[in-house]
Nucleic acid binder design. Structure first.
Length: 595
RNA sequence: GGUCCCAUAGUUCAACGGAUAGAACGGAGGUUUCCUAAACCUUAAAUAUAGGUUCGAUUCCUAUUGGGACUACCA
């Protein structure tokens, strides 16, 4: 039982004894006492006034008095306005601390038995990954880890957008101006090479449109009539017909892209349990159109196209099948969702997709509900905001897109430069140093992005992200390294502390504070998992690291002579480093032993 | 027109409806005989506006202002 629950249950008893009123302990508000007041935990008494028919002060006093008299763990109380501050005994903190240190996988919550699928990343194969994808990938990966820590079975998945007109454009450009280049001959990463081809197509297209307009055609018409676009459509038809030549080219170029993506994923340290390819799934959902028509959920227009009328729900009409009988994006998504729920017996499905698709998911859930799938409500769109740069939004046309590979490389270089400048790593092997630079560079990037509430548009300032001070990944990494360093020092001095935690030690207020923070970790995991917000865990880790620094600054741990106290302190900081590792592990950030 | 999201120090971010709205960066000043000063301490500085609900509102509701996204027989 957490201290909060413990106090709430005792307070419920107190209310029963003093006012003869029954209250559910879980409805009582107990929180950690704010720093500036004396006490460990605080009970908010305002909601109890209707039972006590008295002033907040008197009510608090009466409950506090009863608790002090009847609960041995509660040693003191004071009441400020409507806030009853309770002090717990030293003995209580000692036993709580022992509980934390003796629990094997502290922070791993018991299994819920729930199966949750998390879809994220879902790249297009005609563009290399950029900063926006990084936010998506980091969110998806850390949310998955978070849900796992909260006791769920998690299936990480991605849907690769590997077919369609846009792919044909890249293929066509490669045939026209690609000069037979391959990643090997060009020295380019596969995804970048194909991305360049996509850009090349657009250049050709633009020129053709201009030429047609110069010949007297209107802009709208020219955009439709450009020869290269027609060729691309022809290619798509061939692809759909299974034309061998087109399919071979498609396989080859996609292969390049996947190799490139794998490299980027590896650099980010993320992966998937299951990969779906759109060429396997794009026909899904067609039978749902029939089902919807039978149920009267969909209607057919005179031209043969099929629609879902959502005007009753305050939205517009949504097309689900074109007049030529082919399906659209949302149709696939309907089918894919059905397939996934039934094949994996999912309890929940989370889609990590940018907020530009809020409307899409609103429609998706609505239609699934109308089709009679009760799991429509178990779909969550983890919507995140755009990443902007100090200069403004990223625009591919203006060449301001921050490429993922470039950024990762830049972070590494910055970590290297700063580390070398500090001169603390002189005795490390080159191999260790390389590893460390990657750890720091990536930690900085990941933390900077994850610490922000997902739904907010965030500003990414490359210069600030690599800051080693303040609320940053490297600060936490550094704090961890210092703790490990202290523990190494203790080992050198042959100070054993793990088995020496018998008996009661007098704990300082700062030590109690640290124990409180450590104790809050499982609840924080649970809260963050419910809110699908890794940012909560990030900010928790920062608080813990900061608190350690403040504690260590004025508590001479290694100089302590009393063996029992020394052991307790070493055990305490050891626990801090363990919890830091677990919290940062949820964010996919490694912590070094030295830096 | 419709749907949705956002608005907090100079800047970037916090705050289950709870006490005097927290941090960090930047600014000003200070601290090194426990590990590693990439640290710590002190200091100035903010809830867009107007109503409402409540014992209590940054948080919930309504309106206004400002910013963003979507609203394709694209994906």
């Amino acid at each position: 039982m957490s201290p909060e629950q413990f106090i709430a249950s005792k307070a419920a008893q107190a209310i029963k004894a003093v006012y003869d009123a029954d209250v559910d302990a879980s409805t009582l508000q107990v929180s950690v006492t704010r720093k500036e007041f004396e006490g460990d935990f605080t009970l908010v008494v305002f909601p109890l006034l209707r039972m006590s028919h008295s002033t907040p002060e008197n009510t608090g006093k009466a409950i506090g008095e009863w608790l002090k008299a009847n609960v041995p763990e509660i040693s003191e109380y004071n009441c400020v306005k409507g806030f009853l501050n309770l002090l717990l005994s030293n003995f209580y903190w000692n036993s709580l601390f022992k509980e934390i240190t003796s629990s094997e996988d502290f922070g791993q919550l018991p299994s819920t038995g729930r199966n949750i699928m998390v879809e994220f990343s879902s790249p297009n194969t005609n563009k290399p990954l950029h900063l926006g994808h990084i936010r998506n990938n980091l969110l998806g990966d850390s949310v998955s880890k978070l849900l796992k820590a909260a006791g769920n079975n998690v299936i990480k998945t991605t849907l690769v957008n590997d077919r369609g007109i846009h792919i044909c454009k890249s293929m066509l450009a490669w045939q026209k101006v690609g000069d037979g280049q391959t990643p090997e001959t060009s020295g380019k990463k596969g995804d970048h090479l194909v991305g360049d081809m996509y850009v090349a197509f657009n250049d050709i297209y633009k020129k053709e449109v201009e030429d047609l307009m110069a010949g007297g055609m209107s802009e709208d018409e020219a955009k439709k009539e450009a020869p290269c676009l027609k060729e691309a459509h022809l290619m798509l038809q061939k692809w759909e017909a299974g034309d061998k030549e087109v399919r071979d080219l498609w396989s080859m170029m996609n292969g390049w892209v996947f190799e490139g993506f794998d490299e980027t994923y590896a650099a980010l340290g993320i992966g998937f349990d299951k990969v779906y390819y759109e060429h396997d799934t794009y026909l899904l959902g067609k039978e749902l159109v029939q089902k919807g028509l039978q149920k009267g959920v969909f209607v057919t227009d005179p031209d043969g196209s099929v629609w879902c009328d959502l005007t009753q729900d305050g939205l517009d009409r949504k097309i689900v099948q074109r007049s030529d009988g082919t399906s659209v994006y949302i149709t696939q998504d309907l089918g894919t969702a059905e397939k996934r729920f039934s094949e994996n017996s999912l309890d929940s499905h989370i889609y990590v997709v940018g907020n530009e698709q809020d409307y899409h998911f609103q429609v998706l859930k609505l239609i699934l509900g109308k089709l009679g799938f009760e799991w429509a409500d178990d779909i969550f769109h983890l919507s995140y905001g755009m990443v902007e740069l100090p200069e403004g939004k990223m625009k591919s046309r203006e060449g301001t897109v921050v490429d993922a590979d470039d950024l990762i490389q830049k972070m590494y270089e910055e970590a290297k430069a700063t580390s070398e400048e500090s001169g603390k790593l002189a005795d490390m092997s080159e191999e260790e140093k390389e590893k460390l630079y990657h750890m720091i560079g990536l930690g900085a990037l990941k933390y900077f992005i994850i610490k922000v509430d997902p739904k907010k548009t965030m500003l990414f300032n490359p210069k600030e992200s690599i800051d080693f001070n303040g609320n940053t990944g490297p600060f936490i990494q550094y704090t961890h390294a210092r703790i490990r360093s202290i523990l190494r020092k203790a080992a050198e001095k042959n100070i054993a502390y793990r088995d020496a935690s018998e008996g009661e030690v007098v704990l300082s207020p700062k030590e109690i504070r640290l124990i409180k923070i450590l104790n809050a970790f499982p609840a924080k995991i649970s809260e963050a998992a419910d809110a699908l917000s890794p940012a909560l865990v990030a900010n928790y880790a920062y608080d813990l690291a900061k608190e350690f620094n403040q504690y260590y600054h004025d508590t001479p741990v290694l100089k302590e002579e009393d063996q029992a106290v020394l052991s307790m302190r070493l055990l305490l900081i050891d626990s801090i480093s363990a919890v830091l590792r677990k919290a940062m592990g949820v964010l996919g950030i490694e912590l070094p032993e030295r830096m």
